[in-house]
Measured scan of single mutants.
Amino acid sequence: YIGSKISLISKAEIRYEGILYTIDTENSTVALAKVRSFGTEDRPTDRPIPPRDEVFEYIIFRGSDIKDLTVCE
């Protein structure tokens, strides 16, 4: 799965898409590269977040912050 395009939804209901870079089982983290944030879209939340235009080089997510993770390709 390393190198695959991943769609990830955080506990804050924010969806991110990026390339799976590393999975650290010891620290329970997932790192994505070339990440875009799509905001909360239409998911119900107390704090709606708009999508962002910039592409983040890397984002490291803690396993406890991840609600859903899907391989896109």
Rank of each mutant, 00 (worst) to 15 (best):
T40D: 00
S10N: 11
S37G: 03
T29L: 09
K34W: 00
A33C: 10
R62I: 04
R52E: 14
L20E: 00
V55M: 12
D24L: 02
I14E: 06
A33K: 15
G3V: 01
V71S: 11
I23F: 11
D53M: 02
V71Q: 06
K11M: 14
Y16W: 07
P51V: 09
R47Q: 13
E73P: 14
F61S: 04
S64I: 12
I49K: 10
E73F: 03
E13F: 06
P51I: 11
P50W: 08
T25G: 10
I66L: 06
E17G: 01
R47I: 09
K5H: 12
I60K: 13
R36V: 13
I60E: 15
G39C: 01
R36W: 00
I66S: 00
V30A: 04
I23C: 14
P48V: 15
T29D: 15
E13T: 05
P51Y: 08
E17N: 03
Y16A: 01
T25K: 13
E13W: 07
F61V: 05
K67G: 03
S28A: 14
I2R: 04
I49V: 12
S64D: 14
C72N: 04
I9S: 02
S37V: 10
E41H: 04
V35N: 15
E26C: 06
L32K: 00
K11Q: 08
D24K: 00
G63D: 15
E17W: 01
I19L: 09
N27P: 06
F38H: 04
E41P: 02
L20F: 08
K5T: 08
G39E: 03
I59M: 13
F61G: 04
D53F: 04
T70E: 09
P48A: 09
E13G: 13
V30S: 03
D24P: 02
D68S: 09
D65W: 00
F38K: 08
F61T: 03
Y21Q: 15
F61M: 08
I59H: 15
Y58K: 14
G63K: 15
Y16E: 00
T45L: 01
G18D: 02
R62K: 06
A31Y: 12
F38M: 14
E26Y: 01
V71T: 14
P51W: 04
L8N: 05
V55I: 11
V30L: 14
G3T: 00
R52Y: 12
T40G: 02
L69P: 02
Y58C: 11
S10W: 04
L32C: 04
E57T: 06
S37Y: 08
T29S: 12
D46P: 10
K11C: 07
R52G: 13
T70I: 07
K34H: 07
E26W: 06
A31N: 06
D65Y: 02
L32I: 13
E17D: 04
K11A: 09
T25C: 06
D65A: 07
D42K: 05
P50S: 10
K5V: 05
S4F: 07
I60G: 07
I66W: 02
K11W: 02
D53G: 11
G63W: 06
R52M: 12
T25F: 08
D46L: 11
Y21L: 14
K34Q: 15
T40S: 08
F61P: 01
S37D: 08
T45V: 13
K11L: 12
V30C: 04
V71E: 10
L32Y: 00
L20G: 06
I14D: 02
D65G: 03
V71W: 09
E73G: 10
K11P: 02
P44R: 13
S4C: 11
K34L: 05
I59E: 12
L20S: 03
I49C: 13
S28E: 14
N27G: 14
P44V: 15
R47T: 11
R43W: 01
K5I: 10
S4Q: 11
G3Y: 15
T45D: 01
V35C: 03
R36D: 06
L8P: 01
N27E: 13
D65R: 03
I19D: 06
T22N: 15
A33R: 15
G63V: 07
E57L: 03
I23S: 07
E26M: 10
K67F: 03
R15E: 02
I49M: 12
Y58T: 14
I66G: 02
A31S: 14
I6C: 10
I23H: 15
K67W: 04
S28G: 11
I59L: 14
Y16K: 05
K34P: 05
E57H: 08
I23T: 15
R47S: 13
G3A: 03
G18W: 01
I49Q: 14
I19M: 07
I60V: 13
Y58S: 15
R47C: 11
E73Q: 10
Y21V: 13
V30D: 03
R36M: 09
R15M: 02
G3Q: 04
T45Y: 03
L32D: 07
R36T: 08
E26L: 11
Y21G: 10
